[in-house]
Design a protein around this nucleic acid. Structure first.
Length: 653
DNA sequence: CTAGGGTTAG
C-alpha cells in the first residue's frame, strides 16, 4: 500500500496519503520515508519533521533516504538546530554516507551559510552524481563564492558529467552575480543543445542576466516573446530594471528605467498573478529611487493587505522608501513596527536619520543597535560618521572612527574619510581637513579633493584651494561636476588661463552627458523640466510665478549667485549665465502652482544642485511654509523653514 | 540539485 501514499502525495492530497498511512497494518522504514517525502514535496516540511520524530519514537531505524529527506525538510525550514541534530543521527545510526545523504547534507549546510561544511559533505560523497555537483555549485552561489562555483562546474565538465537543467540554471545565476555575459551566452546555447531551451527557469535567468548586463532591449524582446511566464519572470524584470537604475550613465536613463519597472508592476497586477515578497521589496526600492511617495504608499497598503510586510526585507525596503522620499517620521514608524530587524534594517534607519539631518536620533539608534547585540558593518559606520559630521560633533566622530577599527575590526574606506573631511570643511577647519587628507594611507580621490576645494571656496582660502585643484587635476577627473567646481573657482577668481586649461581637459576626457533636468510627480503624473525650458504647455504662468518667487525671495535677502553653465554643446569660453531658470526652480514653482497648500513638494534632479538653487529653495520653504524635498544626483535635500537637512553640505558646486 | 528581493553616505 505504500505506493498509494506516493500517488496521493504526488497529487497534492496529503490528507489521503496520511489516512492510507494511518491504516497500514504494518509500517516499515519505506512507508515512513514515503510519507515524509510526500510532505516535503508538498511544501510542508514541518509535518515531515513531525513524521520523522514519530518514526524515531516508534522505534524504527531511519535509512539513508529517510535522513536525506529529513535534511531537505530542515533546509526548507531554515532550522540549523534540527539539521545538526540529524547530522548527529547519521553518525549515531551509522547511516551509510551515500549519494542522497551527501547531497542533502551539502545543500543543508549551504542554506545555513556554512560553505566549508557543504563542500566537505560534497567531497565525502563516493559516487557524485549530477545532483551532487549541482548542489555544490549552488552552495557556492548562495554563499557569495560565484567564482568557486564556476570552478566546480569546469571540474564537473572535465569528468564528463552532463549538466541538467538545474545545473544550468545555477550556473546562469552565477553569471548574473558576476555579470559574465559571455559565459551566460555560452550556457544559453549549451542549454538549447541539451534540449532545455524552453525550460522557464533558464529563460528567466537569461533574461535577468541580459538586464543586469545592460542589454535591456534584448531582455525586453525575450520577455515579450515568452508565452508562458511565472511570477519569477515578472519579478526578474522588475528587479532587473531596479538594478539598471544603479549603473546607467545618467539620472535621466535611471529615471526612465524606474518608470519602466513601475509599468511592469502595474501590468503584473493586471495579469491576475499576485505579487509576492520579492516583487514588493524590488518595487519599493524603485519608488525610493524615484522619490515616488504616492505609489510607494499604495504599495505599502498592498503589502499590509497581503501580509508580506512581515517579511524583514520588505520592511527594510519600506523604511528606505519613506526615508528617501523625505518622510522620516513614516520611515521611523515602519522601523518601530517591524517584529524582526536585521543589521541592514538598523543601518537603513540610521542612514535615514542621518540624511535627514537628525543626527541625535541616528546616534541614539546606533547605540540601541549595539545594545540589541547587532553587529554594525562598514556601511553602518558611514551613516554614523555622517551624522556626526552634520552635527559638527568632532570628538564623537573621532571616537566612533576609532571604535570602528578597534572594536569591530572594520578597515576605514574612502567614504569614512570623506565624512570626516567633510566635517572639518563644514566647520571651516580647512587645515585639519587637509592634514587628514595627508594622513590617509591611500591616495585621495577626486571626491576628497573636491570637498576640500569647495570648502576653500566657501571659506575664502583660495591659496589652499588652488593647491588642491592642482592635485585634483593630476588625477584627470572623470566627473563633470568636478569640472564645474573648478571652473567656478577659477572664474570667480578671475584666473582665465586656468579656466581655459580646465576646459581643454574637459574636452580631452570625454565626459558623460551633463543635462540639467528635473521631475516632479503630481497625482501619479510626471512633469519634467529643462533649464530655460519655454517649450512647455505650462510655461506662461510658470515663468510669471517663478519671477514672483524670485522677487519675494530677494526681499527676504536672497541674492542670486552666478555659476557656470556647462552643457554638451558649450563651445564658448568663459561665459557665465543666469541660474534663474535652472530646472529645479521651474519644477518647484510648478509644484507650488499645482498642489494644495502645505503639501510637500518633491523634485528629482538629474545633476548636482548648485549653491544658488540650494539657497533659493531655502528661501522658498520659508516663504511658502512648505516642505521642499529635492533629491539631486548625490543626495537628498529637505528644506524646512529656511533650512536644509544636508546642513549645507560643503561640496556644493 | 534550479531562476527573482532590502543598506553606500560624502
Amino acid at each position: 500500500m505504500t505506493f498509494l501514499i506516493n500517488v496521493y502525495a504526488k497529487c497534492g492530497t496529503m490528507d489521503y496519503a496520511r489516512k492510507v498511512f494511518d491504516n497500514l497494518p504494518r509500517r516499515n522504514v519505506v512507508s515512513w520515508t514515503t510519507l515524509m517525502t510526500g510532505y516535503v514535496y508538498n511544501s510542508q516540511p514541518e509535518l515531515a519533521i513531525q513524521v520523522f520524530q514519530e518514526m524515531l519514537e516508534a522505534g524504527a531505524y531511519p535509512s539513508n533516504y529517510t535522513l536525506g529527506t529529513a535534511l531537505n525538510a530542515c533546509s526548507s525550514l531554515h532550522s540549523v538546530r534540527l539539521g545538526k541534530q540529524f547530522h548527529a543521527y547519521i553518525i549515531k545510526y551509522q547511516i551509510d554516507f551515500d549519494t542522497s545523504v551527501g547531497n542533502a547534507l551539502c545543500s543543508f549546510y549551504s542554506k545555513f551559510c556554512n560553505l566549508g561544511s557543504a563542500i566537505k559533505a560534497f567531497q565525502r560523497i563516493r559516487e557524485k552524481n549530477v545532483i551532487s555537483w549541482t548542489a555544490v555549485i549552488s552552495a557556492c552561489g548562495d554563499n557569495g563564492e560565484a567564482a568557486r562555483g564556476l570552478k566546480f562546474f569546469t571540474e564537473m565538465l572535465s569528468k564528463d558529467i552532463k549538466p541538467n537543467e538545474f545545473t544550468l540554471t545555477s550556473i546562469l545565476s552565477l553569471c548574473c552575480t558576476t555579470l559574465c555575459l559571455g559565459l551566460g551566452a555560452q550556457i544559453h546555447s549549451l542549454s538549447s543543445k541539451l534540449g532545455y531551451e524552453s525550460y522557464l527557469p533558464i529563460k528567466n535567468s537569461i533574461m535577468y542576466l541580459y538586464l543586469k548586463c545592460g542589454w535591456i532591449r534584448e531582455a525586453q524582446k525575450l520577455f515579450d516573446g515568452m508565452e508562458i511566464v511565472s511570477l519569477v519572470t515578472w519579478n526578474a524584470m522588475i528587479a532587473g530594471h531596479a538594478q539598471v537604475m544603479d549603473f546607467v550613465e545618467d539620472d535621466i536613463s535611471a529615471y526612465k528605467s524606474g518608470c519602466e519597472a513601475l509599468n511592469i508592476f502595474l501590468k503584473l497586477n493586471r495579469s491576475g498573478l499576485k505579487p509576492d515578497l520579492f516583487t514588493f521589496s524590488s518595487i519599493l526600492t524603485v519608488c525610493s529611487r524615484l522619490v515616488a511617495l504616492e505609489q510607494g504608499e499604495q504599495i505599502h497598503a498592498q503589502t499590509i493587505k497581503t501580509g508580506f510586510l512581515t517579511d524583514v526585507v520588505v520592511g527594510t525596503a519600506l523604511i528606505n522608501m519613506y526615508s528617501k522620499c523625505g518622510s522620516i517620521e513614516k520611515a521611523s514608524k515602519a522601523f518601530v513596527e517591524m517584529d524582526t530587524r536585521t543589521m541592514i534594517s538598523w543601518t537603513s534607519m540610521i542612514t535615514g536619520f542621518s540624511q535627514q539631518g537628525w543626527s541625535q536620533q541616528a546616534l541614539q539608534l546606533f547605540e540601541d543597535m549595539r545594545l540589541a547585540g547587532v553587529r554594525p558593518n562598514q556601511i553602518t559606520f558611514v551613516g554614523v560618521l555622517s551624522a556626526c559630521s552634520q552635527a559638527g560633533m568632532v570628538n564623537e566622530a573621532l571616537s566612533y572612527f576609532e571604535m570602528m577599527q578597534k572594536e569591530y575590526k572594520i578597515k576605514p574606506v574612502m567614504d569614512h574619510f570623506a565624512c570626516l573631511i567633510d566635517m572639518f570643511v563644514r566647520l571651516g577647519r580647512l587645515k585639519e581637513a587637509f592634514d587628514f587628507i595627508e594622513k590617509m594611507d591611500f591616495e585621495p580621490t577626486e571626491f576628497i579633493w573636491s570637498l576640500l576645494i569647495a570648502g576653500c571656496r566657501s571659506h575664502g582660502n583660495l591659496e589652499l584651494g588652488f593647491y588642491a585643484a592642482e592635485q585634483l587635476l593630476k588625477l584627470k577627473p572623470k566627473e563633470t561636476e568636478t569640472y564645474v567646481l573648478l571652473l567656478n573657482m577659477y572664474i570667480s577668481a578671475g584666473r582665465w588661463k586656468d579656466a581655459s586649461r580646465v576646459r581643454k581637459m574637459m574636452k580631452e576626457e570625454k565626459l558623460g552627458k551633463f543635462q540639467d533636468w528635473s521631475w516632479i510627480n503630481i497625482k501619479e503624473k510626471v512633469y519634467s523640466f529643462k533649464p530655460n525650458d519655454k517649450s512647455h504647455f505650462h510655461s506662461a504662468d510658470l515663468y510669471t510665478s517663478l519671477e514672483n518667487l524670485l522677487q519675494q525671495a530677494s526681499s527676504l535677502g536672497y541674492k542670486s549667485l552666478e555659476t557656470m553653465e556647462v552643457t554638451d554643446e558649450d563651445e564658448e569660453e568663459n561665459t557665465s549665465s543666469s541660474t534663474a531658470y535652472h530646472s529645479e526652480k521651474l519644477a518647484v514653482a510648478f509644484g507650488l502652482l499645482n498642489t494644495p497648500n502645505a503639501t510637500p513638494i518633491r523634485v528629482i534632479k538629474s545633476v548636482f544642485m548648485c549653491r544658488d538653487c540650494h539657497n533659493f529653495a531655502k528661501y522658498i520653504s520659508l516663504l511658502t511654509d512648505r516642505e521642499i524635498i529635492i533629491r539631486d544626483s548625490k543626495r537628498l535635500h529637505k528644506f524646512v523653514n529656511g533650512r536644509c537637512s544636508c546642513g549645507d553640505f560643503s561640496g556644493l558646486p
